[in-house]
Amino acid sequence: MSRISMDEVKHVANLARLAITEEEAGKFQKQLDEMISFAEQLNELDTENVAPTSHVLDMKNVMREDVSKKGLPVEEVLKNAPDSTEDGHIRVPSILE
């Protein structure tokens, strides 16, 4: 039995903001199932009393002085935007119907 259903694959694709075809959903279902089964070998280990590691160095929040600095020039920031307006805005397709 598969560990992940077609509906779940489509749900995950939606969360990830990826459009997928029916055919791709089938392929991902098979591949994700293989990877998840592979990952389940971690369950052989008892990690009840083990703390998770998110960062390997013994560092805590790194702070800097809160001083304002000049940001990047607007024209530079817009240089790589696929669609922008002359008055310095990024244009996107309609958000509300």
Binding site: I4, E8, V9, V12, A13, L15, A16, L18, F28, L32, M35, I36, A39, L42, N43, L45, T47, V50, A51, P52, T53, S54
Partner: peptide, 25 residues
């Protein structure tokens, strides 16, 4: 897809957090 799945609600503890604990080991 794999990353979104392992961070998604209901699977986070079983996959992502488990992997972080194994990282400690």
């Amino acid at each position: 897809m794999l990353g979104t799945f392992s961070l998604s609600s209901g699977y986070y503890d079983a996959y992502y957090k488990k992997a972080q604990k194994v990282r400690t080991l």
